[in-house]
Design a binder for these strands. Sequence first.
DNA 1: AGCACA
Length: 461
Amino acid sequence: MSTSGQPQFRYTQTPSKVLHLRNLPWECTEEELIELCKPFGKIVNTKCNVGANRNQAFVEFADLNQAIQMVSYYASSSEPAQVRGKTVYIQYSNRHEIVNNKSPGDVPGNVLLVTIEGVEAGDVSIDVIHLVFSAFGFVHKIATFEKAAGFQALIQFTDAETASTARVALDGRSIPRYLLPEHVGSCHLRISYSAHTDLNIKFQSHRSRDYTNPYLPVNPTAIEGPVQPAVGPDGKKKEPESNVLLASVENMQYAVTVDVLHTVFSAFGTVQKIAIFEKNGGTQALIQYPDIATAAVAKETLEGHCIYDGGYCKLHLSYSRHTDLNVKAYSEKSRDYTVPDASLLAAGQVSSPTVWQNPQAAPMYSMNNYAAVPTQVPAGQVPAWDPAVQAGAAAYASVPGTFPGQPYPAPPVPTYVTAAMPVGSSSLSQGSPLSPGVASMPMTRPGVQPNLLSGGAPPPG
DNA sequence: AGCACA
């Protein structure tokens, strides 16, 4: 029994720089946590929304005495520690440092990632989002998209302070009912920070806005409506043509790289951009041509054909909804051949480990949100053929413009297969012919000759 | 209201 008047705890009471806080409101943000604790000392780390109910948190002070100050203060205070009116219980943690803190979404920035729970994309208009967030400061840009996590929006403010204010005020709150369709029940906002600092908005559309640039063109495809209008004149379902092709790769026994795709699709004209991504367990790619006509020819010619003999890497092509991909100029999974000094980029980025950004941000854009969002291709494995990539990159520096509008191509032969490479028939050979590294790159087994488009025309010669 | 994550 106790006669000391001090509360007895089942858990250790050894003082620690780290305090364990319980009974927090589940909406409690790091900012609120810091507000509560910083009068007692310098906070070097936090971890909030911990536990099944997300109602616990840890705060680490720079100095043990500061933690003791806080515990002592509230031990004798008549006013309990409170967050949002809830009494918060504070004790020493049984650990002495916070480890593994700070998921990327906790790192403050001027762009917020807002997840709107319990709604579909059509339920909350971009204007409503704009209205709600404009209460805290000038909203520069908004990009919205749908992910497995739900309907999400990136909101760009002027600075991290404004973003933080909005986050503190709105995280865990709901958009007012009168701004929503009647059928929407609750719609809580979950807000974290994005790693982005400046969104790349290409069009004003139902899914993205740039309020700093009223003259930004309206996207003719995006304005049509939510998803896939795709009805032909006869009322039959028909995907609208596009200069961007969506390729899905079936039976992918061999690596289908940006370089391979570039070689294959360049047979029909200038390939401007390529992005590779995973979807539903399969590999897909977006290939951007300058115009629909070129894309149409490529689509008709390549559909159902295989990149390699033996039925490997069979291509299925459709038109993408995108018209202009927003991809990294040079990454493992994407290429922008319209960037003038792609070779410099390549040289710089291939050797730079900082190419990959915030891994948490990546999944949100990794599927097919290339149009409205600064694309981050998910960090993949280091390619086994990395040296070949660099060799290939060198070759590609001369690629833009090397197929000047060649509208109806020669039969697509495997330009990267040494035996079949139409040297001299393509300006690819000028100055920097495809290196042996590129030529052999797709081969994972020496016994199998990549033979583009089996069933197509035989290679010349 | 009672100790994270790997």
